[in-house]
Design a protein around this nucleic acid. Sequence first.
DNA 1: TAATCAACCGAATGATCGGTCGGTTTTTTA
DNA 2: TAAAAAACCGACCGATCATTCGGTTGATTA
Lengths: 208, 208
Amino acid sequence: MSKRNAILEVATQLFSKNGYKETSMAELSLLTGAARGTIFHHFKNKEDIFLNILKNVQENILSSFQQHKETTAYNNGMEMVEGVTVYYLNLAGVMEDQFLLLHRHYPYQMAETNPICRSYLESVYNCLLDIFEEGISIGIKDGSVKVKSARNTAMVLFAMVDGVVRLNTYSLYHAGSLYNELMASCRSILSSEHGTTSVTLNDSKELN
Amino acid sequence: MSKRNAILEVATQLFSKNGYKETSMAELSLLTGAARGTIFHHFKNKEDIFLNILKNVQENILSSFQQHKETTAYNNGMEMVEGVTVYYLNLAGVMEDQFLLLHRHYPYQMAETNPICRSYLESVYNCLLDIFEEGISIGIKDGSVKVKSARNTAMVLFAMVDGVVRLNTYSLYHAGSLYNELMASCRSILSSEHGTTSVTLNDSKELN
DNA sequence: TAATCAACCGAATGATCGGTCGGTTTTTTA
DNA sequence: TAAAAAACCGACCGATCATTCGGTTGATTA
């Protein structure tokens, strides 16, 4: 493998497992066998390495879901959302490092000042939310899904699925056994007959 | 305010907004008006500051929910879970810094080697999951909630609610308008008639 | 009032950080 | 095969890091 790819691969692991600031060029040099100077020959600076990694993450996730959509057929919208959820869980396992990187705060912090970083992140989240939304929209039309807003439900659904993945990465609980409950919850949300009106508990209906 | 409290307060903001490693003692000194030496007079080292903050976070969250339980009555389990959810959303707004700190990776990284840190985190999550589980268990008994496993459902529910809070902190989307969908999804999950058997989509039923 | 002690200060320290640079080796190209 | 280009190296640099330390101040106590 080329030194450049080795650097990107090791850096992905270090950035995701230990964090960006917590990863030193010395450590990266040691684990790749590339001299310090070599790293800066291939990349402008540390941030450039991070952006290249994030670019790979974005491309991997987008192409994975693209391929999934092209190679999988569903009977209705509900089954599509279920399939996408399962595929997401699988991907979070296969691309563990990349997903962990997306679950760290550093990318979003960098996104506040770096528009390229922000575009990568937006691209990823738009892709994920779009595919959930698409399934829901199809489901609403074919009658397999009953919800008010396709986009908002997609966001809540995504927050739930992604939240379980996160819960797993914090090694406080073994969330691996939540698969059945997660899928059941997914179906419950989508086949809901509940309205959105009867809540009278509190006046702060806006998360701030 | 005493210098010690000022240090803890400012450090909470800096650690949560910018991160642990990204916060220097120089910055902390500047923003508190306390000299570098003064900080190390009050705290053994940087990690000690972090642990003191985490201790405060744990105590605040536990006492908040303790007070909530003592001062609020519900007609049934379903309403209790709804109430707890709303209370959680409120608290995430009121204690924004503390929740952001819990949503960073550093605490969980430290927890892997520091048992005190780990105990604080476990205490927080046990408290949160317990109160969700309690509502679900009561709901199962009184018939307002229909799910298989109270604990597992509590975890999925928590993952969803907390996931929406997270989605809000990443400033990619304005998740503040998801309140209605979130509460509707909460009710849907709890009043589910769905089983957990009909999934045949994939052989990887374990998140890894 | 003398002694004690905690709060407070900021210059100094050694380690580590990201990044540079001049030079060597290897590969590609003409 | 000669020249040009790309890959690679590690000593070196200035900046920044957490932490230390000798000393001052202000309140409490004996």
